[in-house]
Simulated scan of single mutants.
Amino acid sequence: MDDEEARARLLDAAEALFYADGIQAVGMDRIRAESGVPLKRLYRIFPAKEALLTAYLERRDRRWLTSLRAATAGAPDPIAAVFDWLAGWFAEPGFRGCAFMNAYGELATGPAGVLDVVRRHKAELRALLAELAGPDDDLADQLLILVEGATAVAALDPGPAPAHRAGAAAAVLAATSRRSAGT
């Protein structure tokens, strides 16, 4: 196994374990065991748990936002497509809410590098929603609140219903925004 394969295996194990069980509950030895990567190589690739956690969140950010962008690209109603995509995500087996908010909740006073990734993810999500909302900055902020709120509610009671309810509210807000803009 080369370092690239070892890195991928470590990130796969970290993602599965951190998301399912929480960051504090998962030690490096457990990640080593799950990944099959020797401990010496693990620490050569990721010298500290913070480095592994940061890499896991950065990879998840890229995949998550790429998937959401793909779901909205070319959609007749891209705002509705956001909430349809969320409904599918919320219904996935093992859904445990937002990995970024979960990390923030566990490490709110924790490593600055990890918290920077969380903040950057939320800023990128807000930027994507702003692209979809058009010139109405208030609508982008409102959509972000709906996305985050639906995700929090779905973490407590998984399933598509929170996304559908938030999507209905988003449709009303978008229609109001269009009327206000005169379009």
Results as ranks from 00 to 15, higher is better:
142 Q>P: 00
155 A>W: 00
52 L>S: 03
28 M>N: 11
183 T>H: 08
183 T>S: 14
178 R>T: 02
182 G>N: 06
126 R>S: 10
116 D>Q: 13
51 A>D: 14
84 D>R: 15
52 L>E: 07
34 E>Q: 13
117 V>K: 06
14 A>M: 05
7 R>T: 15
134 G>T: 07
106 E>D: 04
156 L>H: 07
129 L>H: 03
59 R>Q: 13
111 P>G: 12
61 D>V: 00
53 L>A: 12
55 A>D: 07
17 L>R: 04
73 A>Y: 02
179 R>W: 00
69 R>E: 15
43 Y>Q: 06
146 L>M: 07
92 E>L: 14
177 S>H: 00
30 R>A: 13
80 A>H: 12
25 A>Y: 00
33 A>N: 13
94 G>N: 04
73 A>C: 08
3 D>S: 12
62 R>K: 14
22 G>H: 01
49 K>Y: 06
29 D>A: 13
46 F>V: 09
52 L>D: 00
134 G>V: 08
149 G>V: 11
164 H>N: 03
62 R>F: 12
23 I>N: 01
93 P>G: 01
165 R>A: 15
130 A>P: 04
115 L>F: 08
167 G>S: 07
19 Y>E: 00
171 A>L: 06
154 A>F: 11
105 G>S: 06
83 F>P: 10
17 L>P: 01
148 E>N: 14
70 A>W: 01
174 A>Q: 10
123 A>I: 08
5 E>K: 11
35 S>Q: 04
154 A>D: 09
142 Q>S: 14
90 F>S: 07
30 R>E: 15
20 A>Y: 05
63 R>S: 11
27 G>S: 12
64 W>A: 11
74 G>S: 09
47 P>I: 07
36 G>M: 04
167 G>K: 12
114 V>H: 04
180 S>E: 11
112 A>F: 03
171 A>W: 02
94 G>H: 03
99 A>S: 15
70 A>C: 03
173 L>D: 10
148 E>D: 15
76 P>T: 05
63 R>L: 15
138 D>Q: 14
38 P>M: 00
60 R>N: 06
8 A>R: 14
58 E>Y: 05
83 F>V: 10
147 V>D: 10
98 C>H: 03
154 A>N: 04
182 G>V: 06
101 M>K: 13
144 L>D: 13
22 G>I: 05
176 T>C: 08
85 W>T: 05
96 R>W: 00
42 L>E: 01
74 G>K: 01
3 D>L: 02
110 G>A: 10
34 E>I: 08
58 E>N: 03
30 R>Y: 00
111 P>K: 10
47 P>Q: 00
164 H>F: 10
155 A>G: 15
54 T>H: 02
5 E>Y: 00
161 A>C: 01
38 P>N: 11
26 V>Y: 01
131 E>P: 02
162 P>D: 12
155 A>Q: 13
36 G>C: 07
78 P>C: 08
15 E>S: 09
152 A>K: 02
11 L>T: 07
159 G>H: 10
74 G>Y: 05
19 Y>T: 03
38 P>G: 14
139 L>H: 07
8 A>Y: 03
85 W>K: 05
